[in-house]
Amino acid sequence: MTLLSVKNLRVSFDTEAGLVEAVRGVSFSLGRERLGIVGESGSGKTMTGRSVLRLVRPPGRIEAEEMRFDGQDLMALSERDMRRLRGPRIAMVMQDPKYSLNPVMKVGDQLMEGLRQRDRLSRSEARAKAVAALEAVQIRDPERVLEAYPHELSGGMGQRVMIAMMLIPNPDLLIADEPTSALDVTVQAEVLSILDGLVRDRGMGLIFISHDLRLVARFCDRVLVMYKGRVVEELAARDLLAARHPYTQGLLNCLPRIGGDRGPLPGLDRNAEWAR
């Protein structure tokens, strides 16, 4: 069953320096599966993710032939209806909890905000749910974390809080935009396995945006490879290491391998032809 289908998505910025096209005709569809989007910085992967939520900042403009989520045309929805989807139906985990959590609000207030404001739960009901959500991301003393401010948390804890916050309303689709790139390698693995378990258990659709191909290959079912705002290759994750496209091969080759050749890593081969 298709949860999300995107056809010919374009995101452009009308800046003083001229029109910048960040995404140029991206199409994909997604069921309750895990789709990875990979590509180097500036390839348009983040903008693709944010377009689904219609949260591209002005002067950015989103255009698409079709962008359907669960039967609703996202391009035609009013801002008000779009707001109803954000949170309970589509959520997003961002890269760095240092910036994506409000620095002057207690973690608890941020976790409970949706429950209090949208679902009109009482303080104690909301609190109970927030505690449960923190336990689900394996935070051991949730009561204390609720009273903490974001700067008092480590990066790994902050990202778990972020994941807990986004999963509280049980969305159907989660967009994870480089959710572990700002974390230490050891913490990365933990956060990933937590995310993996939750998404699997709840049967959500996941768009996993990353520049780390090997990670995506392990973690996702299907992968889109983006270059300069376009999808250059789409393939099953298990076939990734056998990718044919030279750009994908390039991305793979510029990752160092433990026990591998210690010589200089090859530079990424970029060919304007691929972006046509």
Binding site: R50, L55, R86, G87, Y99, S100, L101, P103, R118, M165
Partner: peptide, 10 residues
């Protein structure tokens, strides 16, 4: 970025 977070939360 936390502003985007608040918007993502609806």
């Amino acid at each position: 970025e936390y502003i985007t977070t608040a918007r993502v939360k609806g």
